[in-house]
Amino acid sequence: MPKMKTHKGTKKRFRLTASGKAKHRQAGTSHLAGRMSQKRKRNLRGCVTTTDTNSKIIRAALAGNSY
């Protein structure tokens, strides 16, 4: 059987934690931040983890490759 390929878009956007959850950057942080309140910008900082259901789908798309 052929090997399962890694989904390259998923690879660029997610990283798996040691427990198998998927970390990602929050949406809305790349530009046009001048019109946001300071509280909103502060809360968008850092990484967040996805739900267990989404983590399972992301893990399958990564095909065992987390970078």
Rank of each mutant, 00 (worst) to 15 (best):
N43I: 00
K12F: 07
R45V: 05
T53L: 08
R13V: 02
L44V: 01
R13A: 13
T50F: 00
N43K: 12
G9E: 14
T17C: 05
T50S: 14
G28N: 04
L44M: 13
S30N: 09
F14Y: 15
M36Y: 11
A27W: 03
G28M: 04
K12I: 04
T10I: 11
V48Y: 01
G9C: 10
S37I: 00
L16V: 01
K8T: 08
L16N: 01
L44S: 07
G46H: 07
L16P: 00
R42S: 12
I58H: 01
S19C: 05
S55H: 02
A33P: 00
A27G: 06
H31R: 11
H7G: 00
T17V: 04
S37H: 07
G20T: 05
T53H: 07
I57M: 09
S19V: 09
I58K: 02
K8P: 00
K21H: 13
G9D: 15
D52W: 01
L32S: 11
I58A: 01
T10F: 14
G34A: 09
A27N: 09
F14K: 02
A18Y: 02
F14P: 03
T51D: 13
T51N: 10
T10Y: 13
G46N: 05
T50D: 10
H31G: 03
K39W: 00
T10Q: 03
K12T: 06
G20H: 08
G9W: 07
K41L: 12
S37T: 15
R15E: 10
T51S: 15
A22R: 07
G28I: 05
H7D: 15
A22E: 04
K11S: 10
R35C: 07
S55C: 13
R42L: 07
L16R: 08
T29F: 01
R42V: 02
G28D: 09
A33W: 01
G20V: 03
K8R: 11
Q38N: 11
H24D: 00
K12A: 14
D52N: 12
R45A: 10
A18L: 06
R25H: 12
G46T: 07
L44W: 01
S55K: 02
K12E: 14
R59T: 14
L32D: 11
K8E: 14
T53Q: 12
T49L: 05
C47E: 15
A22H: 02
T17A: 08
G9H: 09
G46K: 03
A33Y: 04
G46A: 02
T51G: 14
I57V: 12
R15G: 01
G28T: 04
R59H: 06
